[in-house]
Amino acid sequence: MERSQLLTLVLEQIEEHLQQTQIGNDASQPLPKISEDTPLYGKDGLVDSLGLVSIVLSVEQAINDELDSEIVIADDRAMSQKSSPFGTPGRLVDYTMLLINERK
């Protein structure tokens, strides 16, 4: 899987999550434009901790379905990174790419 494919997958999962939550349901509030540098979690983040759990699990499942793999994104290493891999979609993609490449 290429980085660009993974980024598309991650952005899709985030948008789907936002659509399913209040932001998306409120017609007067359009979905925010999301790029790989948009704050995802933490200061000014798009989602709270439960939202992050949903997104990470959805990404994990989509990848495992696609690659027939058993990747666990929220592993001990992810939790102990100096710079959180969940800060932005781009960082989530980079960390997940690392896991995908390690299994090769």
Binding site: N64, D65, D68, S69, E70, V72
Partner: peptide, 13 residues
Amino acid sequence: QSSVLNLFKQIRK
């Protein structure tokens, strides 16, 4: 853990 992950990989598939 790896055995459990493999179990669920099979169930999912």
